[in-house]
Amino acid sequence: MASIPQKVVHQYLRHNKKFPHVWCAGCSNGIVLGAVIRAIHELQIPKDDVMMVSGIGCTSRMPVYVDFNSLHTLHGRAIAFATGIKMVKPNMKVIVITGDGDATAIGGNHFIHAARRNIDLTVLVLNNHIYGMTGGQYSPTTPEGDFASTTPYGNIDEPFNICQLAMGAGATFVARGTAFHALETQTLIKEAILHKGCSVLEIVSSCPVIYGRLNKKGSPSRMLENMRDNSINIKAAEKLPPEQTEGKIIRGILKKDDKAVEYYDKYTQLVNRIKSKNK
């Protein structure tokens, strides 16, 4: 048997079981998986305490590859399954891995309601602006005018801004990273996990094989460089006049509210209140 490579990620992969993985060469999902693993490693969270839950899509294949408690659910429903787990095992770090379609189309209802409840889930939305798994149909985040297999004449739908949606719905930690800024994203993942309450981290990612080709976005590396060229960290953005940041992807922590009481804690408070009354 070949010896096991000794990078941090290899300590967490189910390397002898489920590889090769399903992702295309050049897909950014692997970069994000690496960032997730290193974030968990740096936080020193025991593997037994990590619960990774996903929906359906290319992105949602992630949990099978890692040596955590893992649950690969139904299209759009990861957050609902995760809610059940969190309420029964509140001490677990429940991380939801979901795509833009999974989270904001079919799963949009669960997404906003988890945010409203402020339940302690870390929701990582990998936004590649397309339905990758099913061959490139448009999603709620496909930019207007862009091409997908079901928008052969260009997309007329107005896209969602995932972070604004999460903030509007009441998530208490909202941030954005990109697959290009892997180290920065890793730090954001750590912050999102540490935050007690509903954390939503949008990670702009790339589907070079379908979205990239249909929209002439260039090679996989070119698509990653575009993230570098078209984004700006919120701290830098705050110092610039609005016209200079228009159309840019704003990276960093967009909202962080540490005062709001988390949902399970509220439930516990309720239980304590009624139990003391009944005594």
Binding site: M87, V88, I274
Partner: peptide, 30 residues
């Protein structure tokens, strides 16, 4: 809440059923 359990009203029946499965896998009769 009085019997060491959790009651949650979900946003629809789809999520209710999914939450029930998640809770069961986490060890609770659901």
């Amino acid at each position: 809440p009085l019997n060491d359990g959790v009651y949650i009203q979900m946003e629809d029946e789809i999520s209710s059923m999914c939450a029930v499965i998640g809770a069961s896998l986490a060890g609770a009769k659901s």
